[in-house]
């Protein structure tokens, strides 16, 4: 579904990603771990098409289509979703209004009419229940005055609304208490299917207890230095990243 080949990317002429190779098939969950500054969030941004980063080499393919010339919004229409590590605030725009706009823009790209208000309300009700979100929350301005946990839960709510093919969750677990983590994880698990894929970017093994990955990759200095099954995460938890750094420094 998502094929990344020899991906190099830089920001302000500083190379951050130095040759990433990754293939993700439908129905799979991949975890990407690694120390701070290893390039995890950059990888997420580059997949989503953030123009702050320049792709200098390599390619990203979604369902066989090269994404190089595809704008961020078109990538979204094709099913790429990024749950942001730091979601931005948009004052005066309610969560509901924002979602309504996003959904209708995607529909428009597919040549469909706006979603009828009745269906929209039903969808909102369904998905907010899935994530145990209070309906009052949905009329608040997007992310304005939200707690860290509320922001993250709102990201997953948006994911549920948009039903992406490839969802990238960038540090969705940070800032969540254990109850919120459980709700978010169970939401993600319910949204998972054989037709979509999830990429979890995380520091800690904690999230992976709730959302079990099929593969774990360790990113260091802009490269994947080790890949394995879910047991790799446990190993990292135990030993830290230093042993890997030493191993790859050679």
């Amino acid at each position: 579904m998502l094929k990344i080949k020899d991906l190099h990317a830089s920001v302000d002429d500083k190379e951050i990603l130095r040759g990433i190779n990754l293939e993700i098939k439908a129905g799979e969950v991949h975890a990407i771990m690694g120390p701070n500054g290893s390039g995890k969030s950059t990888l997420a941004s580059v997949i989503a098409g953030n123009e702050r980063f320049e792709v200098t080499q390599g390619s990203i393919e979604l369902s066989g289509e090269d994404l190089e010339e595809v704008s961020p919004e078109e990538r979204a229409h094709k099913g790429v979703f990024l749950s942001f590590q730091y979601p931005v605030e948009i004052p005066g725009v309610s969560v509901t209004n924002f979602m309504k706009t996003a959904i209708n823009e995607s529909r428009k790209a597919r040549g469909l009419e706006d979603m009828p208000a009745k269906d929209m309300l039903k969808l909102i009700r369904e998905k907010s229940e899935l994530l145990e979100i209070d309906r009052k929350f949905l009329s608040r301005s997007l992310n304005e005055g939200f707690s860290g946990g509320e922001k993250k839960r709102n990201e997953i709510f948006q994911m549920a609304m948009l039903e992406p093919k490839v969802a990238i969750l960038d540090e969705t677990d940070s800032g969540l208490d254990i109850d919120a983590l459980r709700i978010v994880a169970s939401g993600v698990n319910k949204l998972k299917s054989k037709d979509n894929a999830v990429i979890l970017i995380t520091h800690y093994q904690r999230l992976l207890e709730y959302i079990v990955p099929d593969f774990v990759h360790v990113l260091h200095n802009g490269k994947i230095v080790k890949s394995g099954g879910k047991e790799l995460a446990l190993e990292l938890e135990e030993k830290g990243y230093d042993w890997l750094k030493q191993e790859t420094a050679v």
């Binding site: 961020p72 919004e73 931005v88 948009i90 005066g92 706009t101 823009e105 995607s106 948009l162």
Partner: peptide, 28 residues
């Protein structure tokens, strides 16, 4: 902010529409 625009883009909202949304929110 560019980050606001990118956030909207990522949700499938093109830049022009994103600006309209942000401006409408600001003027609400």
């Amino acid at each position: 902010g560019e980050d606001q625009i990118f956030y909207c883009n990522q949700r499938g909202i093109p830049t022009e529409k994103a600006i309209a949304l942000i401006v409408n929110g600001f003027s609400k």
